[in-house]
Amino acid sequence: MHDDYLSGTIDAYDRNPLRYEEATGAMTPVAELDAFLALLPDPAARVLDVGCAFGRDTALLAERGLRAEGVDLSAGFLERARQLHPELAFGRMDARSLDFPDRTFGGVWCQATLLHLRDEDVAAAFAEFLRVLVPGGALFASFKEGEGEEELVERFSSDGARFYRYQTVPRVTTMLQDAGYRVAAVDRSNEFERFGPGYRDLTWIHAYAVKPAVD
């Protein structure tokens, strides 16, 4: 299940997954991983990395003692993830339609993935994440800050055109609340200030939320 507006984005990743890996591989989200782990109901929880790309964050989650597995819509990314991390499980799935039973995961990690979805599809993904989370389970999701949507070639990490939907802190907060989450925090960080020369002057939104203990 994916819509025509996403096909170009998936193709861009499939054509050159190594380009994206080379551009983003060193952007380790240490602070975000630590904050996410602090929200989990179990320090050895089963967690799902949605939009896992080449598996960097899936492996980082596993290194922290979690039972991590990854899913993505890009076959090229999944092939690379399996090459780099043969000990971990990866599958091809849409964030809006996950092939897992209800209450499977203690956490869902979704880094720089939902920014490729329109608002109604972000809402669908949030609902699906809520379904597969156990009561008390935690969600992390990140977005690029801004307004509107566009399809463009962002040469930092790809030569292909990709679709982007930009978000604001209030909009992300409202979407999470509307989906039934308790919002733990929504913060912002500037990529250039954090990682230095060679990176972009753009602001990322980091959202942390929890599924209510009774659903």
Score class of each variant (00 low, 15 high):
Met1Thr: 10
Asp4Met: 07
Tyr5Asp: 05
Leu6Lys: 12
Ala12Ile: 01
Asp14Pro: 00
Arg19Leu: 01
Glu21Pro: 04
Glu21Lys: 04
Gly25Arg: 14
Ala26Gly: 13
Met27Ile: 06
Glu32Tyr: 05
Leu33Gly: 13
Asp34Trp: 02
Ala35Thr: 14
Ala35Asp: 10
Leu37Tyr: 03
Leu37Asn: 05
Leu39Gln: 07
Leu40His: 10
Asp49Met: 12
Val50Asp: 01
Cys52Met: 03
Phe54Trp: 12
Gly55Ser: 07
Arg56His: 09
Ala59Ile: 01
Ala62Trp: 14
Ala62Phe: 15
Glu63Ala: 15
Arg64Tyr: 11
Gly65Tyr: 05
Gly65Met: 11
Leu66Thr: 07
Leu66Gly: 03
Leu66Cys: 07
Ala68Asn: 10
Val71Ser: 00
Asp72Asn: 12
Leu73Ser: 11
Ser74Asp: 07
Ala75Ile: 09
Leu78Thr: 00
Leu78Gly: 01
Glu79Asn: 10
Arg82Gly: 01
Gln83Asn: 01
Leu84Gly: 01
Leu84Gln: 11
His85Tyr: 14
Glu87Ser: 06
Leu88Trp: 06
Phe90Ala: 12
Phe90Cys: 07
Phe90Ser: 05
Gly91Val: 12
Met93Cys: 13
Asp94Phe: 05
Ala95Val: 10
Asp99Met: 14
Pro101His: 01
Gly107Ser: 07
Trp109Cys: 07
Trp109Ile: 04
Leu114Glu: 12
Leu114Ile: 12
Leu115Met: 10
Leu115Phe: 05
Leu117Met: 14
Leu117Lys: 02
Arg118Phe: 10
Arg118Asp: 14
Asp121Ser: 08
Val122Trp: 03
Ala125Gly: 10
Ala125Pro: 00
Ala125Met: 13
Glu128Val: 02
Phe129Ala: 05
Val132Ala: 09
Leu133Glu: 10
Leu133Asp: 08
Ala138Asn: 04
Leu139Cys: 08
Phe140Gly: 06
Phe140Asp: 04
Ser142Lys: 04
Ser142Asn: 13
Lys144Pro: 14
Glu147Met: 10
Glu147Asp: 14
Gly148Cys: 03
Gly148Asp: 04
Glu149Leu: 02
Glu150Ala: 15
Leu152Asp: 13
Leu152Phe: 11
Glu154Val: 05
Glu154Tyr: 08
Arg155Asn: 13
Arg155Trp: 03
Ser158Thr: 15
Ser158Asp: 08
Ala161Cys: 11
Val169Asn: 02
Pro170Ile: 01
Thr174Trp: 14
Met175Ala: 08
Gln177Arg: 15
Asp178Phe: 05
Ala179Asn: 05
Gly180Trp: 13
Gly180His: 06
Tyr181Thr: 06
Arg182Tyr: 13
Arg182Leu: 13
Val183Tyr: 06
Val183His: 03
Ala184Gln: 04
Arg188Gln: 14
Asn190Ser: 08
Glu191Arg: 06
Phe195Asn: 09
Gly196Ser: 04
Gly196Ala: 02
Pro197Phe: 04
Gly198Asn: 11
Tyr199Thr: 15
Asp201Lys: 08
Leu202Gly: 10
His206Glu: 15
Lys211Arg: 13
Lys211Asn: 07
Val214Arg: 01
